[in-house]
């Protein structure tokens, strides 16, 4: 009806008030989004500053040159951790969702202990373990991988459990009535349907392990400095430099690309009940 024309004045006033509220609400969201991104953008900006004045890619050249090993090590540990997490978590998730195991809650809680242990505590306790009992792998690549796996496989386990629980048993039953044996059912039907849950776990593992520095600080050997740890070490010793800014930018940019790819392919629904969602 023609309410607006009948009481034009007050209604226009009211609607402009509503506009103001709505504008402020969006401004608040954008303010926070700026706060999320600003540290990254400023870091990128600083990474382009040349110590001798002006702007250059000197920092990046330096980062890719002298930090190359660290970057490669970060990628290697991340990928190996992801593979091991998959191999450990999928059978474990099946056991927890589909098998009658006594004391399931306790077991799940025990598996998640590492998830709730503060990084420094985990780092110190692992360094004690490696010094006291497992000196053969102390400071090695595998010591890092072991720490990452134990710290992150629950992040893979949880989304897979969620996905497996959401997966109706009817698909597996349908496959069996159509003559598919246990392995075929698993490989052709169930794992593809769990795919997004597994991918969510991969994303979480990637984001965490690729950027981990604290546990690494306690257990990394001399020759095994990951990229994130390198950034920390230079910061602790030499303060802020364009080359570390460049390395930090590279790390965040890589992580962000992985996140974007995930959202593009799978959307955000499979991150529910996890760390990111």
């Amino acid at each position: 009806m023609s309410e607006t024309t009948a009481i034009g004045g007050p209604s226009r006033f009211r609607s402009s008030g509503r506009w103001l509220t709505s504008g402020l609400q969006h401004a608040y969201i954008w303010l926070w989004m700026a706060l999320f991104v600003l540290p990254f953008l400023t870091t990128v900006y600083r990474s382009l500053e040349d110590p001798k004045g002006g702007y250059s890619f000197e920092g990046y050249r330096f980062a890719f040159g002298s930090f190359q090993d660290a970057l490669i090590l970060s990628l290697q540990t991340t990928i190996v951790t992801i593979v091991l997490n998959i191999l450990i978590s999928i059978p474990a998730a099946y056991a927890i969702v589909r098998y009658p195991i006594p004391g399931k809650r306790t077991i799940l809680a025990a598996l998640n202990v590492s998830l709730y242990t503060p990084g420094a505590v985990m780092g110190l306790s692992l360094s004690l373990l490696f010094a006291y009992r497992l000196s053969s792998i102390q400071g090695s690549f595998w010591a890092l991988v072991a720490a990452y796996v134990v710290g992150t496989f629950p992040l893979m386990l949880i989304p897979v459990i969620v996905a497996l629980r959401d997966l109706p048993t009817v698909f597996g039953e349908a496959a069996r009535t159509l003559g598919a044996g246990r392995w075929r059912t698993l490989l052709r039907v169930e794992i593809p349907l769990l795919g997004p849950g597994i991918t969510a776990g991969i994303l979480l593992t990637f984001v965490i392990v690729f950027n981990e520095f604290l546990v690494t600080l306690f257990i990394a050997g001399k020759g095994n400095q990951t990229a994130a740890l390198t950034i920390y070490n230079i910061l602790a010793r030499a303060g802020f430099a364009p080359s570390t800014a460049a390395l930090a930018s590279i790390m965040q940019f890589t992580s962000f690309v992985v996140v974007l790819l995930f959202f593009k392919v799978f959307g955000s629904r499979y991150l529910k009940g996890t760390y990111l969602g």
Partner: peptide, 16 residues
């Protein structure tokens, strides 16, 4: 089940 050679129609169609 997979060796019985049966056909089962589910309540939900259960198409993959």
């Amino acid at each position: 089940t997979h060796k019985r050679n049966i056909g089962l129609a589910f309540q939900s169609h259960a198409l993959f």
